[in-house]
Design a protein around this nucleic acid. Structure first.
Lengths: 178, 178
DNA sequence: GCTCGACATGTCTCCACTGGAATGTCGAAG
DNA sequence: CTTCGACATTCCAGTGGAGACATGTCGAGC
């Protein structure tokens, strides 16, 4: 249900075509709310029908540039401020952790170690994005920086937690059961 | 696709009926992988068809107690160790952060503040769970503790980040643009 | 003048998840 | 002995996302 609001949000910053949006999704929202072209174009159609966006201009190759309407902006604001964020995010990573007991201890440790490595990689990747957003000053960048900071902190947390967890399992396993 | 592995994982600890599983989901997996009864019973049927679990015993009220088969256990281990964790978790909270620019600054600040409050509540809730899992010693509890620790750390992170973000917005807004 | 790659929009099917509802059984308390 | 609440299962309609596929246009460079 949030894809529509992601689209509204992006269009509220600047008019764009479906193709443009696709690019923006790949770049800046890839880590927050990935979307495919089918979803995007479908949503653009529905939003137009609902009167929340409208075609601002047509260009070459059938390009349609969309922009939010007043109603769309109102809906966006309403969603941000008043709709309760929904639900527990599901984590298949954490789910695996729950069942690590089904694996021999050395494999469990290896799994946790690989989580730490993944987190480290993500961290490196996010850090590489920092210079990109640092200099810009549009709304999306300002708030994008907040989101990026979240990502940085979360990746660090994942790494530290994985290292801690690995240590836990190790110590459980080494100590005799007396 | 992970619901089936959650079911396999739980059944690998102990045989259980659909109803039992539902309870377990509500208690220990509620924050990791919530599931409804329709999903659960559906999945139990599919898993049985696939030969990954089997009916171990039938009880009163049509109760069917399931247990994993060898094939099921193998599938579980394979999933944990070898299937790459999938994808970016979507966060509608973070998505809202991206578009906070659509709101007047004071509302943006209020939103961040409410995030901090939510995180605080979650933290309190998770802390209340700590004594529950602390004493037990089965596999699920051991690894459940790891998951719980993750939750604690993540909630703290959310609170701290929200407070930091609020400060960022405030300072941006107060400083003159010269 | 042709071709290739980027631009651009759409359709279709499958699967997971949601939420609701219907149905029936057993045990305990009054 | 009756009734109520916990136990227990099954079905269904609707929605949203994933991913594959189909189609067409323009511009640059050879």
């Amino acid at each position: 249900m949030s894809l529509r609001h992601a689209v509204l949000g992006l269009l509220s910053e600047a008019p764009a075509s479906g193709y443009d949006l696709l690019k923006i999704f790949e770049m800046s929202l890839a880590n927050v709310w990935p979307a495919t072209q089918s979803q995007l174009y479908g949503e653009l159609g529905k939003l137009t029908d609902a009167g929340l966006i409208e075609v601002a201009a047509e260009g070459p190759r059938g390009r349609k540039e969309y922009r939010v309407t007043e109603a769309g902006l109102a809906e966006l604001r309403h969603w941000i401020a008043e709709v309760p964020p929904n639900t527990v995010p599901r984590s298949d990573v954490l789910l695996r952790v729950f069942f690590l007991g089904a694996l021999p201890a050395d494999q469990a440790v290896a799994y946790l170690r690989s989580l730490a490595r993944d987190a480290e990689n993500d961290l490196a990747h996010l850090r590489s994005l920092v210079p990109h957003v640092e200099c810009q000053d549009d709304n999306l960048s300002v708030y994008g920086r907040l989101a990026l900071e979240w990502g940085l902190r979360a990746s660090e947390l994942r790494r530290e937690w994985a290292e801690w967890a690995e240590e836990q399992i190790r110590s459980l396993n080494v100590t005799p059961r007396d």
